[in-house]
Design a protein around this nucleic acid. Sequence first.
DNA 1: TCAATCCGTATC
DNA 2: ATACGGATTGAC
Length: 670
Amino acid sequence: MARRASPSRRPAPVLPVARVCVDVPLPHLDRPFDYLIPATQSEAAQPGTRVRVRFAGQLVDGWLLERVADSDHPGRLSYLERVVSPEQVLHPEVLAAARAVAARYAGSLADVLRLAVPPRHARVEAEPTPTAPSPEVPLPRSSTSDAPDSPGWAAYPAGPALLRALTARRAPRAVWTALPGEDWPARFAEAAAATVAAGQGVVAVVADGRDLDRLDAALTARLGPGRHVALSAALGPAERYRRFLRASRGQVPVVIGTRAAALAPVADLGLVAIWDDGDDLHAEPRAPYPHAREILLIRAQLAGAAALVAGYTRTAEAQQLLVTGWAQPVTADRATVRQRAPRVTPTGDEPELARDPTAAAARLPHLAWRAARDALAAGAPVLVQVPRRGYLPAVACADCRTPARCPHCAGPLQLPAAGQVATCRWCGRPAPDRRCARCGGQRLRAAVVGARRTAEELGRAFPQYPVRTSGREEVLARVPGRPAVVVATPGAEPIADGGYGAVLLLDTWALLTRADLRAGEETLRRWLAAAALARPASAGGTVVVVADGGLPPVQALLRFDPGWYAERELADRRALGFPPAVRVATVTGTPTAVADLLAAADLPEATEVLGPVPVPGREQEEAELERMLLRAPRAAGARLAAALHAAAGVRSARKVRDPVRIQIDPVELW
DNA sequence: TCAATCCGTATC
DNA sequence: ATACGGATTGAC
């Protein structure tokens, strides 16, 4: 009666059962399935390998999570079809983190593993191992010294202690607010070197390729060649897998990269680090939409590793780490900040037409024009930051321009049409009688993004200097320390040799009134990133921000005090019920699908359900989508995610129609 | 009484 | 998803 199961196949003599995570996207199949390991494959079938298995009649990819002696499954087990490769690319520490990430974000393990391990490239896997420097080779700088060689960290009272703690494997956790002009890649490299000197591995994540290049260079300078790899989506599949393998095989102690590197393997993880955690590039756009910072913090927590959350600014999430005592601040004292910071001046946005025809030509406020002119005359380059197009129009108080919020749930308001009553984008309630929280005004105006100032206009204002642009199409990494006008969009500001003489922050109105919860924080982040490239005030460095000096982000910029702003921001979010003070989930889909899912969800008691609201900007979709917003106390966050994942499972087990998208603490909340 | 079909359920 | 089983319904 030998049917399909070939009689020649017999189970492996030891630990014959493989627990396998099958690579299918259905949430109700998000658990391991047991398979028999054929004796012939026993050697190859190690935990962390890729396998092929027959599942529901078809061949699918899977991950061999672990080997056990026997199975709880009451039915008959199938054999593994084959072990794709003996390479153990899924490390136990990464698996544990991936499980926690899936749970945190109401997602499936298979989805997270797809983000964690790049696609296999068989030819690369077969390549002979490149000769790696022996681990016995000492670091270029003294790695045996108890006090690490890094004067740069001495500018921060807690800095040297941070490095000592890394060297001593005490797993320090820090929120580092970098000084203006700080050479952060060098500081990151020093922290990495201290960890490596202690015999541990490092994973560091940055937002984009430009930051990655800088960190790459700093690590090469500090650690020497061949001690780290840089992973990014921009690499081809072969090179990406080649570098991943070097990390996975323990040939390098340090991995740096963009967000997908947050789950990269290193031996004995000692430090996770993220630069500029407020950049929205750190948010993964694929399910389950995890944020690189959260992934890294989960890893640090589970592995007992150190953590470094860093930037010129401080996010509300970083502030939350400080408030809960999970991490300690690494911040310079005020005297040092004053010494390093440029002079910052706010100005109104009315160009003084009569006084200055050239300024008017560029639609530049007089003060901004004068700062630029003086810096150019002094032989320094000038940076002009202009926002990119394409922000959602918001509604703001017509008198003081404070973004208008719903009196019921504090969501942002929208004006369906001129003259109509404003309604909330979150809960859908009309808000006919609301008053501005700041000034009490009742009139509203739509905050329309102004016309973009072009480089040509600035060229007309400063005809004798070259004008260069850095933006979406072409991003400049560096400009020489000579007079020139550099026009850049946020995130594309080149570094200037010797620093910029003046930095002009224009069209700030568009940034500040974005219809987004994070508008203020994001504005300050972009300003500080640009202002940090200016010379110190003592060397003539000036920043002119075209905005009302009374606005909190402007205040924070004037004082160069992102910590103050973060405290305020977190307090606001607590008062309004936003992350990270609370846990939020959004559920998006067709009205019936969303209602179905929520009906099936066993939500924690304290969950507040807001909505539904129509989802904007999806004109072509055949079915109209809507979104519900759920919020729960942080303590109930795990239960909220579990309830939504389970409900998605119940739904997907029944009918496959009408997918719903579940996002936990989405970066964009409007 | 049997067979074609429908629905629900498990997928190891 | 897809494959299977048990229930259901229609025709002989």
